[in-house]
Amino acid sequence: MYRRHWPTALGLLAAMMLGWYLIYTELLVREMRRDSVAHSRIYVHILRGLNDPTEGAAEQTLLDLIEEVQALEVPIVVTDADGIPAFVSNLPFDADPTELNDQIRIARYTRDLARRNTPVVEPGLGTIYFGDPPIVGRLRWVPMLQVGALLVLFAAAFWMIRHNLRVERERIWAAMARESAHQVATPLSSLEGWVEILRLPAEEREPLASISAVAAEMEADLERLEKVSRRFEWIGRPVRREPVDVPALLRGLERYVRVRLPQLGRGVELRIEAATELPPVLGNAVLLEWALENLIKNALDALAGSGGSIVVEADATIRRRVAIRVSDDGPGVAPALRRRIFEPGVTTKTSGWGVGLSLSRRIVEDVHGGRLVLEPTEQGATFVMTLPSADGAERSD
């Protein structure tokens, strides 16, 4: 059986055990009701014997009671003062108390009964050994069935959780691979464009860009490739944090995105607004730039085909923190997705993998101890990234 079928098999086994447990319980209930009927009949026989004035009624009542007791299937052995069996009923084997060989066998059985229940000594009659009714033996299986069903359920739940985690992990890895390919493809396509420009004759190339400008852009693309190679390496492991100049970070990101706006989002206006004298934040510049880039790309995807504006604002807040808002005037996020928008795999795009916002939140919250939320708005979408300032983080340490 394939490993992926184990959760289903365990779930079916657990369902079968629960079904069997329910049937078994119903059979026990029916047997207990039959015992209740037998006990009621015994009571009726006693009342009848007490109220019957005819001769021999008492003896007949006792004989009827013996039959009713035998119907309860409780094993009983009565021995005389010498320990010799005088009366037996409902033994699990055929035996004659008058036969010597059977007496030996019955004696062994009485010792077993004595271990289960304390014998009753009746002066003038002898010792009464008795066992348990059949229902007691069946009731002993109930805890075992319950424990077995619980174990199977726990095993099924464990395997299902492991299976779901493995599927989720594989899906995230596939999304990460796709995101990595996308991250690499952008600067590679840009380098390919710059190479085509360099191949043009000088008289055609100069109106487009000078050699120094092309070299500067190619250098920026190479730096971007180096950053991409480090980004995925740093996810999930401790990184060195240092003071990061937020306005400088935003300006560098603006330069990179603005040059590529014709390819990334036609008709989209990008505006950066950073407060003056903004305190630096304590973090990793490469990862923070990645998180902001994902938010801007998310806004570009929301405005694809329709145009619009993206505004990135940064200002200081109380409690020594810096807030960075990325807003767009696109269609916004559907109410049904607002609570799950940061979960891996959740996306509003038909061809998306739902990994960008999840990575951004992980970078902001897990790596930098900040917070990333989707702010309620009437139009468009606004993501707010709150980060501790370098001064505030050092004081809290």
Score class of each variant (00 low, 15 high):
residue 30 R to Q: 04
residue 307 G to H: 05
residue 86 A to C: 10
residue 205 R to L: 03
residue 91 L to H: 03
residue 81 A to P: 00
residue 2 Y to W: 14
residue 127 T to C: 05
residue 88 V to C: 02
residue 314 A to N: 11
residue 192 E to H: 11
residue 212 S to F: 02
residue 202 A to W: 08
residue 270 L to Y: 02
residue 268 V to W: 01
residue 33 R to M: 12
residue 302 A to Q: 11
residue 137 G to W: 13
residue 316 A to Y: 13
residue 243 P to M: 04
residue 256 Y to L: 12
residue 82 D to L: 11
residue 271 R to M: 06
residue 44 V to R: 15
residue 98 T to S: 11
residue 126 G to V: 10
residue 13 L to A: 15
residue 37 V to C: 01
residue 55 E to C: 01
residue 363 I to H: 03
residue 274 A to C: 04
residue 214 V to N: 08
residue 295 L to I: 08
residue 317 T to W: 15
residue 143 P to G: 06
residue 53 P to V: 15
residue 260 R to K: 13
residue 40 S to P: 00
residue 365 E to A: 03
residue 292 L to S: 07
residue 190 S to Q: 06
residue 21 Y to T: 12
residue 135 I to Y: 00
residue 230 R to L: 04
residue 351 S to T: 13
residue 136 V to S: 09
residue 216 A to M: 12
residue 272 I to Y: 07
residue 61 T to G: 02
residue 370 G to H: 06
residue 389 S to D: 07
residue 243 P to V: 03
residue 161 I to F: 14
residue 261 L to Q: 08
residue 91 L to W: 05
residue 116 R to Q: 13
residue 256 Y to A: 11
residue 72 L to N: 07
residue 109 Y to M: 01
residue 91 L to D: 05
residue 22 L to K: 15
residue 298 N to L: 02
residue 81 A to T: 04
residue 323 A to N: 09
residue 296 I to P: 00
residue 288 L to S: 01
residue 86 A to L: 14
residue 27 L to N: 11
residue 64 D to M: 13
residue 78 V to E: 04
residue 228 V to Y: 05
residue 91 L to M: 05
residue 194 W to F: 12
residue 21 Y to A: 09
residue 351 S to A: 09
residue 387 L to P: 02
residue 241 R to A: 09
residue 224 R to H: 00
residue 142 V to L: 10
residue 60 Q to H: 14
residue 152 V to Q: 07
residue 167 V to R: 15
residue 203 E to F: 10
residue 192 E to C: 05
residue 328 D to T: 05
residue 397 D to I: 06
residue 314 A to H: 10
residue 239 V to Q: 06
residue 333 V to G: 01
residue 314 A to S: 10
residue 147 V to L: 14
residue 214 V to Y: 03
residue 377 T to H: 02
residue 134 P to N: 11
residue 71 A to Y: 06
residue 7 P to V: 10
residue 309 S to K: 13
residue 140 R to F: 03
residue 280 P to E: 05
residue 393 A to F: 01
residue 36 S to W: 12
residue 22 L to H: 15
residue 150 L to N: 03
residue 103 Q to I: 03
residue 134 P to C: 09
residue 236 G to R: 09
residue 159 W to L: 09
residue 218 M to A: 12
residue 299 A to R: 02
residue 392 G to N: 10
residue 194 W to C: 09
residue 370 G to I: 08
residue 293 E to V: 05
residue 386 T to C: 00
residue 14 A to G: 14
residue 257 V to W: 10
residue 366 D to K: 11
residue 188 L to M: 12
residue 372 L to I: 08
residue 178 R to E: 08
residue 200 L to P: 01
residue 248 A to G: 01
residue 209 A to H: 06
residue 172 I to W: 07
residue 146 Q to H: 01
residue 140 R to G: 00
residue 263 Q to F: 01
residue 159 W to C: 02
residue 12 L to H: 13
residue 20 W to Q: 11
residue 25 T to A: 12
residue 75 P to V: 07
residue 29 V to F: 14
residue 384 V to Y: 02
residue 61 T to L: 02
residue 291 A to R: 09
residue 350 T to K: 15
residue 373 V to H: 10
residue 293 E to G: 12
residue 261 L to D: 04
residue 274 A to E: 07
residue 282 L to Q: 13
residue 297 K to G: 01
residue 187 P to N: 02
residue 192 E to D: 14
residue 237 R to F: 08
residue 265 G to N: 09
residue 295 L to C: 03
residue 187 P to Q: 03
residue 130 F to Q: 08
residue 275 A to H: 05
residue 253 L to F: 07
residue 31 E to W: 07
residue 240 R to L: 14
residue 32 M to H: 11
residue 202 A to F: 04
residue 319 R to I: 06
residue 157 A to V: 10
